[in-house]
Structure formats: structure tokens, C-alpha cells
Design a protein around this nucleic acid. Structure first.
Lengths: 234, 234
DNA sequence: CTTATTACTGACAATGCTGTAAGTAGCACG
DNA sequence: CGTGCTACTTACAGCATTGTCAGTAATAAG
């Protein structure tokens, strides 16, 4: 019997507790469940939220219209009413996510244009909040792995230029490529953290050793320090 | 019309030129195509190869029995004859890939137990060959993103211990956590490179600038240098 | 040549998915 | 209250996919 031609794990789990009630109890006929009517804008937002959640968790192929509909509490054609096709829905999700990501990054950079001395730690923490904690890096990782977008490198150049401009005031001899490499390394580490961080850390501790909750934070601090050391020697 | 409920890109493209000929020419009836009979072992290997290729390129959901069957040149029930279900096939692919990965890593580490001075560059290059160039990192990234396996961190602890043991001969004061962090960073960077490397580098060059083919290599050399610098200065 | 084994095939069943069609119901406005 | 708009629903069509079944043919062994 061909039972599950789709994703194997998490077969029917609801993300939120919504879903259509459809009480099979009492009334002999069948009481059609009460219908909630949102504004088009509200509905679109709720649907996009649910879709983005699933996209970050399960990837593009985990985004199923019926699941999203269940999360939101509507029937799946309602989604097709607001977004004309699944594909359009997905590209809307991506568009919105990247737009928010850019805004967050701009804000994170702009928010501290003062000359606070150790800029790396703050920048690393901001990037971590935006990319890893908010789940954006996972969405990007899915998209880049699937090769569905080229727009994953949002603002890398800008960040590198801003960082270098600030850096040469202290280290006039620093080359731009060196700064760029540091930014790239931080970016790669963020993506890697979002994809493989927990797994790698789990593999790093010796068997039976309990998880060290402070380790990710310590690691980021260490990384910030590493990224601000000059490598003149040998 | 619901035409494509599955992956949108690459709808019907064959990867190899095989596929069943089934010549519709000549003979009025229909000539059943000649049948090639492999040993069970050969068949399993060919199927696993094709499945692994698709897994690295398209992810778990890109692994479709009919596509793999077309790649190999058999009908899809033949796959189910050798592997009893799609799920078992996938776990066989993963098992084999991780096994090979571990073997490659062990070999890469063992092959240079001499006291060659700059060990980082060699190690970085070896890790890059094994993880990125051979495509293993992409498979791992897919699996870790999908949360389907915990065994992505193969050998992290071992590498860190070996590296630290070698390191303390030169830097007796080095802490293990520092060494571990360096290994972790290299690992995260490798995963990040496999997932986001090209995209990030494309975003890093200013618009219109041509691609710099040597940059990845320079980056790895720079990374190796960075990972061997001590960060005593506060 | 005959026979046994089994790699392999074609046809089909079962299911889940996207998208369509037509009708229903919530809400604003007269 | 009636009317129009449209968010939303139920039912269904069409297709892709996994898995089953019964049979076919390649190869080895007697």
C-alpha cells in the first residue's frame, strides 16, 4: 500500500493548535463550523507567517498548502484565493523574508555608528540575532541549497565596506581583501551555525558529557576576538 | 490544471542519457527493449550512486524513484526489488555516504602524522577536498537541515584532540577549548562554504566585477593562517 | 536441452498534492 | 431589509508518486 508518498517525518503534527474543528459529536446532520472572515491583508499576513515557519523548519518541500491552511485555520483553496499558486506564495514568502532581513541588517549596522571600541563582538551578536536566532539563515540555507535564489548574500559587500572604512582608521595598512575575508568568514560561520551548529557541538563533547548552554555564546565571543586580531606574524 | 505538484525546476531532464529506448519505429506491434541483467551487487551500487548524486544536488525530496530508475536505466520497481522501500534506499545512501566520509577523514588525518610545520593549511585543504569538493558537506547539510540525522559531526572531537595534542608541543599554554573552537570554526566554515560559498562570494564582489577563480583558494590559505595565529593580545 | 533462480518489467492500486468550479456566508452600504 | 462584494467552503479533476502483483527473460547449473 502506498501510504506516504511524501515527507516521512512529522506526518500530521500541527504547528499551532488551530485547524478546523468540525465537531462530529451531537447534531445528527452536521453543523458547518463557524466561518471567520479576515481582511485580505490579515489573511495574507497569517498565511505568509505560517508558510515562512514551515519553510524554515522543513524546507521548500515541506511547504504544503493543506498544512499551512490547517495552521491558519482555513481550507486550502483559501490560500489559492489570496496567492494564485503555491509557487507565487513561496516567492512571496522569500521576498518578504529577504526584505525583512535587509532591513534588520541595515538597522543593526546603523544602530551603532558611534566609535565604540570593540565593534566585532557587537556586530557578531547582531548578525547572530538576525540570521540565526530569527531563523533567517535557515531559510537562506534551504534556498541556496535548492539553488532557487542567488540573493542569499544580502549586504555582504556593504558590511565589508563599512567595516573596512572603520578599520583603516586604526590599522591604516589593512587591505580590503583581509577585511572582506573576515566578513565572509563570519557569514559562512553564521550559515554553518544555523545548519550544523547544534549537531557539530553535540559531536564535539565527549560521550555522556552534558550540554554546555553557555558554549555558543563563548564561541561567538571567541570568534569576535579572533576576527579582530591582526595576523602580521609569519 | 494541477500539472506539477512536485519540484518546479528540472521537470523531466535526464541526468544520464540512458533511459529505456522503446523504439516506436518499424515493427507494427511493439518491440520490448532488450533487458540488461546486472548482479544484485552491481545493481545496488549503481542505484545508490544515482540516488546519492540526486541527494547532493536536490536534497531528500529530489530523490524520486522514477528519476533514479531512469538514471540507472531500469524501471522503478526494480529499485524496490533491491531496496524494499524508498525510505530504506535513502537510509542506505546516507549510511554509505557517512561511512565513506569517516574513512576519508581518518585517511586525511592519518596520512600526515609527520611533524610538518604548517599543519593547518594541509588540514584545511584536506577537509575541503573531503567535505566540499566531494559533495559530502552538501549531503550533510541537507540531512541536518531536515533534522533527519544527528550524525553530521563525524570526527569533530577526534580531530580536535589530535590537533590539540600536536599543538601543545609548541604552545604548552593553549587551552583545549581554544583548539576546539578553531576546529569548530573550520567545520562551520566548511559547511557554510558548501551551502553558501558561491552565493556569498558573488554578493561580495562589486557589480560587474568578474569572478575571481583563485579567491576560494586564497581564502582557505588566509583561514589557515588565521587559525594558527595566537590571540594573546587583549 | 531442461530447469531453477531471480533480476527485472508492465499494469495497476492507493494516496496526497495542486488547482478549478460553483456555491455560501460575513460584512458594508443603501 | 435588501444588495453587492468577496473571503471562504465543499466537491472534484488531474497528476505524480510509492508500492504491489503477476509474469518475463537472462543466466547458471544439472
Amino acid at each position: 500500500m502506498a501510504r506516504t508518498p511524501r515527507k516521512s517525518p512529522s506526518p500530521h503534527t500541527k504547528v499551532k493548535g488551530r485547524s478546523v474543528p468540525s465537531p462530529p459529536e451531537a447534531t445528527g446532520k452536521s453543523v458547518p463550523p463557524p466561518r471567520r472572515r479576515r481582511t485580505a491583508e490579515e489573511a495574507r499576513a497569517e498565511i505568509l507567517d505560517a508558510a515562512e515557519r514551515r519553510l524554515a523548519e522543513l524546507g521548500p518541500d515541506g511547504v504544503r498548502l493543506q498544512q499551512i491552511a490547517a495552521d491558519v485555520g482555513v481550507s486550502h483553496p483559501a490560500i489559492l484565493h489570496h496567492f494564485e499558486s503555491r509557487e507565487r506564495l513561496l516567492s512571496e514568502v522569500v521576498r518578504r523574508a529577504i526584505q525583512r532581513l535587509e532591513a534588520d541588517i541595515v538597522q543593526a549596522i546603523a544602530s551603532k555608528n558611534e566609535a565604540d571600541e570593540p565593534p566585532a563582538l557587537e556586530t557578531i551578536e547582531a548578525a547572530h540575532r538576525v540570521l540565526v536566532a530569527k531563523g533567517h539563515a535557515r531559510v537562506l540555507a534551504w534556498l541556496m541549497l535548492a539553488g532557487q535564489t542567488q540573493e542569499g548574500g544580502t549586504g555582504v559587500r556593504t558590511v565589508a565596506e563599512v567595516a573596512h572604512e572603520r578599520r583603516v582608521r586604526i590599522e591604516p595598512n589593512a587591505t580590503f581583501e583581509d577585511t572582506l575575508f573576515r566578513v565572509l568568514l563570519a557569514g559562512l560561520a553564521m550559515i554553518g551555525e544555523a545548519v550544523a551548529g547544534p549537531t557539530l557541538r553535540a559531536a564535539a563533547r565527549r560521550p555522556g558529557e552534558p550540554e554546555d548552554a553557555q558554549m555558543p555564546e563563548r564561541f561567538r565571543a571567541w570568534l569576535a576576538k579572533l576576527l579582530t586580531t591582526s595576523l602580521e606574524s609569519g
